[in-house]
Simulated assay, not measured.
Amino acid sequence: MLTQLRKDNPLIICITNDVVKNFTANGLLALGASPAMATEHREMEEFLMHAGALLINIGSIEESHKENILKAAEYANKHNVPIVLDPVACGASKFRKAFCLKLIHEYNISVIRGNASELAALTGEASMKGTDADATLSTDIVARNAYNTFKTAIIVTGEVDAICQDGRMHLLKHGTQLLTKVTGGGCLLGAVVASFIYNEIKPSLALLTEAVATYTIAAERAEQSANGTLPGHFAVNLIDQLYCVQEDDIAKELHVKEV
Rank of each mutant, 00 (worst) to 15 (best):
D132Y: 13
V142A: 04
L230V: 15
R144Y: 08
I109E: 03
L188E: 06
G167N: 07
E62V: 12
G184L: 05
A51V: 06
A53M: 05
A53V: 05
L48R: 01
V84N: 05
N80V: 10
Y243W: 09
L85D: 03
L242P: 03
H65G: 14
I15R: 00
S60M: 11
L242G: 05
T123W: 10
V212M: 04
H79D: 08
A219F: 07
Q246E: 15
A76N: 03
N26G: 09
N115E: 11
N199H: 15
L31V: 13
Q241Y: 01
L101K: 11
R42G: 09
F23V: 11
A218R: 01
A162R: 00
A235F: 09
F196Q: 05
S110L: 11
F23A: 04
D8Y: 03
M37K: 06
D134Y: 13
I109V: 15
A89T: 10
I155N: 01
T24K: 00
N17Y: 06
G32S: 12
N199A: 13
E45D: 11
A30F: 08
I217K: 01
E63K: 13
G184R: 02
F150S: 04
K181G: 09
E200Q: 15
F234K: 06
D86C: 02
S117Q: 02
T123E: 13
C90K: 02
I104K: 04
G167Y: 05
S60V: 10
L171H: 13
I109W: 03
N17W: 05
G59L: 04
L103V: 10
R221Q: 10
T229C: 05
T209P: 02
A213D: 03
L122V: 06
Q241A: 04
H170N: 15
K151D: 14
Q4K: 15
D134W: 11
L85K: 06
R144Q: 14
Y243C: 10
I163M: 03
H233G: 01
V160L: 08
A120F: 02
M1L: 14
M44W: 04
A226K: 13
L101I: 09
L230W: 10
K252T: 14
L2D: 01
F196D: 02
N227H: 14
A133I: 07
A135C: 12
I155Q: 04
L11H: 00
G130N: 08
I12S: 01
A218G: 01
E210N: 14
A153K: 03
H65I: 11
E67K: 14
H79P: 09
I83N: 00
D161E: 14
F99L: 10
L254E: 07
N57M: 06
L207E: 03
E74F: 11
A211S: 14
R168Q: 14
E46M: 05
H105G: 12
E106G: 06
L122I: 07
G52N: 07
C244Y: 11
Q165C: 13
I163Q: 01
A143E: 12
H174T: 08
D248R: 15
E40I: 15
S138A: 15
A33W: 01
E220F: 09
V156P: 01
I163P: 00
G124A: 12
E118N: 12
V193T: 15
N227C: 13
T24E: 06
A191H: 02
R6F: 11
M49D: 11
T149D: 04
E43M: 07
I12F: 06
A38M: 05
I15D: 00
A72H: 07
I250H: 00
V19C: 10
S64E: 14
F99D: 02
A191E: 02
P10F: 00
